[in-house]
C-alpha cells in the first residue's frame, strides 16, 4: 500500500475548460465536483505543476478512455522560437525552431502548446537540425510558433488505457522517479465519442510505502441510493452515489511504518487521501481517493511489528 503524502501539486491548467467547471475543481476534495473541458471537447490536456520530491500522480473520476501522462522537468523546458515557422523537410520530418533545445537523436521530448505538434516525440536523426532547430518525425502542417509553445525532454511518459474490452476504470495511478526539482505532469486525456472530457481529482505527491494488506481485505460499497417498498411489494429505487469501502489489517514495522501511518493520520485526519491500496497487482483497480473516517486501531503484539486495522471510504 502506498499513501500519497504530502501532496506536492499546484493548480493545474487545462487546454480547454467549461467556465463553470474550472480546473480548481481538480484539487478540491470531491470526486463528483469535476473539471470539464468545453462542451463537446473529447481530448484535452491538463498540465499539473508539481514541486520537488514528488514521485506519483493520480487521477480519479474521469470519463477518459485513455490518458498519456508525461513528466517533464521545469528547468528543462525550452520555448519555441517566437514567430518562426515549422519547416517541412520532406520524408516525414519537420524542423522546429527552438534556441537552446539541447535535444539529440534518441531523446524523448514533449511538445506543448502548439496547434499541430503537441505530444511526445522521439528524436530522429538531427542531421538537419542545429543548436536553434531540432527535427521531429511528424506530418507537416504549417504553423508559426509563439513563445508559449514549449519543448521539454521527457523524464517518463506512460499511456494508461482506462477502457478495455472487459472493464472501464475512472482513474489511474502513475509512479515515476522522484524528481529533485519542480516538474510538470502533462496529461493528455481522450474520452469516448459524444462525451465531454472531465476529471474529478488530480493529486501528485510523495509516496509513503506500507506493506500490502493481509489476506482477507474486505471490499464493499456504501450506497446512498433511496430504496422504498411500493404498495405491491416492488421497490422504488433512485440510484445515487455508490462509493467503494475497504477494511483490512496490515502488519507494519512499528518504528517506521506504524508511526508513519500515525503521522499521516495525525496530519490529515479524515480528509481524503490518494492511496494505492495494494501494489503490484493492478493499479487501476486499487487506486483510491478517499477517507479514513475513523482513527485506525493498532495493537503492538510483536516486538517490532504492529498490526493495525483501517477502514477506507471513497470520497463522493
Amino acid at each position: 500500500m502506498k499513501i500519497m503524502y504530502p501532496e506536492r501539486h499546484g493548480t493545474p491548467t487545462a487546454s480547454s475548460a467549461d467556465a463553470n467547471y474550472p480546473v480548481a475543481n481538480l484539487i478540491d476534495d470531491r470526486r463528483k465536483k469535476v473539471w470539464k473541458a468545453a462542451s463537446g471537447v473529447q481530448a484535452a490536456t491538463l498540465r499539473v505543476p508539481i514541486s520537488a520530491n514528488a514521485e506519483a500522480i493520480a487521477v480519479h473520476n474521469t470519463n477518459a478512455e485513455s490518458a498519456i501522462c508525461t513528466i517533464t522537468l521545469d528547468s528543462a523546458e525550452v520555448e519555441l522560437t517566437d514567430g518562426q515557422p515549422a519547416v517541412n523537410l520532406g520524408g516525414g520530418l519537420v524542423k522546429i525552431p527552438s534556441a537552446g533545445h539541447g535535444l539529440s537523436e534518441g531523446d524523448v521530448a514533449l511538445m506543448n502548446g502548439t496547434t499541430n505538434y503537441d505530444g511526445v516525440h522521439t528524436m530522429p536523426t538531427q542531421a538537419a537540425g542545429d543548436g536553434t532547430n531540432y527535427v521531429i518525425t511528424a506530418t507537416y502542417a504549417a504553423e508559426t510558433f509563439s513563445n508559449t509553445d514549449t519543448v521539454c525532454e521527457v523524464v517518463e511518459s506512460t499511456t494508461h488505457t482506462l477502457e478495455t474490452a472487459t472493464r472501464s476504470y475512472d482513474r489511474f495511478w502513475q509512479e515515476y522517479t522522484s524528481q529533485v526539482a519542480a516538474h510538470t505532469a502533462t496529461i493528455k486525456l481522450t474520452s469516448g465519442a459524444g462525451e465531454t472530457i472531465e476529471v474529478g481529482i488530480v493529486r501528485a505527491g510523495v509516496l509513503v510505502d506500507f506493506p500490502n494488506p493481509k489476506y482477507g481485505l474486505s471490499e464493499s460499497r456504501e450506497d446512498f441510493s433511496i430504496k422504498k417498498q411500493l404498495n405491491n411489494g416492488a421497490w422504488y429505487i433512485r440510484k445515487r452515489e455508490i462509493v467503494r469501502t475497504y477494511s483490512g489489517s496490515f502488519n507494519m514495522t512499528r518504528i517506521t511504518e506504524f508511526y508513519n501511518m500515525t503521522d499521516i493520520y495525525d496530519a490529515t485526519g479524515p480528509e481524503p487521501l490518494s492511496i494505492l491500496l495494494a501494489e503490484d497487482i493492478n493499479d487501476l483497480q486499487w487506486a483510491f481517493f478517499g477517507h479514513i473516517l475513523n482513527p485506525f486501531s493498532g495493537s503492538h503484539q510483536y516486538p517490532s511489528y504492529s498490526e493495525i486495522t483501517i477502514n477506507f471510504t471513497e470520497a463522493v
Binding site: 463553470n20 475543481n25 470531491r30 463528483k32 465536483k33 469535476v34 446512498f224 445515487r240 463522493v316
Partner: peptide
C-alpha cells in the same frame, strides 16, 4: 442536496 452537475456545479 447531493451535488448536481448542471450548467455549473451545485455544491452538495
Amino acid at each position: 442536496l447531493e451535488g448536481f452537475l448542471g450548467d455549473h456545479y451545485w455544491d452538495e
